[in-house]
Amino acid sequence: MYAQMITSEATQDDPEKLTTFQARIDSGEKIEPKDWMPEGYRKTLIRQIGQHAHSEIVGQLPEGNWITRAPTLERKAILLAKVQDEAGHGLYLYGAAETLGVSRDELTEMLLDGRMKYSSIFNYPTLTWADMGAVGLLVDGAAIMNQVPLQRTSYGPYSRAMIRICKEESFHQRQGYHIMMKMAQGTTAQKKMAQDALNRFWYPSLMMFGPSDKDSVHSAQSMAWKIKMNTNDELRQKFVDQTVPQAEFLGLTVPDKTLRWNEDKGGYDFAEPDWSEFFDVIKGNGPCNTERLAARNKAWDDGAWVRDGLMAHAAKKRAAKLAAE
């Protein structure tokens, strides 16, 4: 998902406290920043929320790529609003992570020097305008699958950030679908572009949910703590079941020859993505990893004088105000 392969941190806490803590979670209570929590819970959450926040921020890059080249002024305004929302999502999530005792700048620096990750999906390029449609439909669609259940997560600030994000997210998916619709109903060349975008983003979107359950051994603790609400495969299945009819409605074909409706399980059978590609992208070898991190580093470095200048200005104003009193 936006948070992939999050390993739960081991916890060495007082067993009695752990039992009380687990009982609170099991009874549906929210854990708040000042409450006692196991060290592993705190660390796992920082990693997960941080990675989620980084994904929102880095996720602005592939779409930002098309703001100046949107086909109409209206599309441009819409895309701008969508990308601005993603900046907000990053901020809500950084805010939630900060309540766990890590600072915003620390989180940023961990992204910039590679200690923290962001979702693999944002290491793929956006080559045509139809990609804006595919991203809204598939990437935001997959994000929604994961974020809706996370509204019920046990950590209060994370849950509240998710609620706010989910409210804004359906606009994203619908604007993407609308782009796809226009393209799919357009000229032969436009329809071809829409199909091509779907082809390229289908498997990377399936990877967003993380490796298959049989290969992901880390989820039991996170699920008990209610910071992971569903298994990777559960969410992937739901996503496929929802998305296939949406693509078919547009007259587009999901690029999977093995795709079949399975009456018994009430869902589609589908092909797994190439997991070796996934692990390679996670390791930093995707088509855009270097470019994305370079762009974030440049923004951070180029902005340093602005951050410092505004702090100096604020201090000066405070001093002038004091002197006038």
Binding site: L91, R104, A161, R164, L310, A314, K317
Partner: peptide
Amino acid sequence: VGSLHAADAEMALKNARDVYTR
């Protein structure tokens, strides 16, 4: 509704407008 970082109160208000009242 949430939190944000800003150098001073004026900027905090402007950022809050941009982030929380879109």
